[in-house]
Design a binder for these strands. Structure first.
Lengths: 218, 218
DNA sequence: GTTATAACCGTACGAGCGACTTGTAAAAGC
DNA sequence: GCTTTTACAAGTCGCTCGTACGGTTATAAC
């Protein structure tokens, strides 16, 4: 037999090439030839690792979801030990906004997948997958906050968690559309959290101030 | 000269055929031949009214935006004269949820357009267009509510309006993905409004109860 | 009645697509 | 050292796409 190759690693490299193309041209605009070229390999080689385009698409979605979950975990762990539930929530939610190029690309890819997942059952199953988990995690954080007396108990619900996710998702959507800037979205996220946690304009705590770059043109 | 044909009407008919296809297969899945067949006309005829596919896409987006604006206006006018700002907001926001087949298709088409607008400047301009207007309108309703003492004045802001739009947009997104049901989204919208207007579980007013169809499988 | 022209229809073209097949090199197993 | 198996490369197939174009019909204008 020939040299053994790490299939998983190759597939991940190809997935990342796919994202780069999908984030600028969409999933339909990413032909196998384009992806192969972007990954610096031949079409034949790509087809050696993915027998069909759908197979590649599904794998790349699973991979990006895995990475996203990892990024969220990292963000939480980068907080001080014993962070407040509110700090955890803010870290996760702001991670869902396109505040840097990496998450911006991730969101663009996610948008491309969403548009296809709405019609494609195979992709839909994957795309749905993470949300209930995320909602449950957020709801748990809300409950912890309520126990600590930082949140009104009747707001520590799954519905409230889903509203949080939805709002941030919508904010991100409109950043990508160019309706407002990333820092505007972050400001509104903080506003939302402030209302949820019942701050009454007393100067928001537990988070760094948004810095600079005010009128920076798009 | 031959008979004069109402170009605008023909173009609208074609647009509607496009929506039907785009809502089930996406914009890339809607070929000119498919659209022509759906509209019951020949490819040649479609090309007589739209010289390129892009021209058709832009027109159809403008048309659906126009219709959506009209639907919102209708919804407001169908309320009693002198409706409360809160009732106006609820009417508009629930109109943004996929509660019936018509709005569901509209949202699917919107999603398909969004995915393309993110890359395509021409479509982006059209897709962005309505949001600031809607935000301003909502902010105005919030201000009116504050004047009437139904809302804390410091929450009558453009940011709050944008948060409202974002939340409902996100809720709709996840309905289309199949994460939750339309009536769940409506319930969370009402929850959001209740918090915004400072209800404290005292039984929500000014809106009909959501009826039946509880465990209806998807 | 002639003419000009809008309103079509049908077809064809060139490009690009995903999928498939065949060919080749090389290393692991015996 | 021969065989087997993996890892590719390259070419090709049938199809669909957006676009272009030539031809036909019908009617309004004169």
């Amino acid at each position: 037999m020939p040299k053994k190759v790490d299939h998983e690693a190759r597939r991940q490299e190809i997935s990342e090439a796919l994202w780069r193309i999908a984030s600028t041209r969409g999933l339909d605009g990413a032909s196998l030839r384009d992806v192969a070229a972007e990954a610096g390999i031949s079409l034949g080689r790509l087809q050696h690792y993915f027998r069909t385009k759908d197979e590649m698409l599904v794998f790349a979605l699973q991979h990006i979801n895995r990475l996203a979950a990892g990024r969220i975990r990292e963000r939480i762990e980068s907080l001080d030990q014993e962070p407040t539930p509110r700090a955890v929530l803010r870290a996760c939610l702001s991670g869902m906004l396109p505040l840097d190029d990496k998450s911006r690309i991730g969101l663009l890819v996610g948008a491309a997948y969403y548009a296809r997942a709405v019609h494609d059952p195979a992709l839909r199953a994957e795309a749905q997958h993470g949300i209930p988990q995320l909602r449950a995690f957020f709801a748990d954080q809300l409950r912890r906050a309520a126990e600590r007396g930082e949140l009104s108990p009747e707001r520590a619900t799954e519905d409230e968690a889903m509203l949080l996710i939805s709002a941030v998702d919508g904010l991100a959507t409109y950043v990508l559309l160019g309706v407002h800037e990333p820092q505007d979205a972050l400001r509104m996220l903080d506003l939302k959290l402030a209302h949820l946690f019942g701050d009454a304009g007393e100067g928001v705590e537990g988070q760094e101030r948004v810095k600079g770059r005010e009128g920076a043109g798009r």
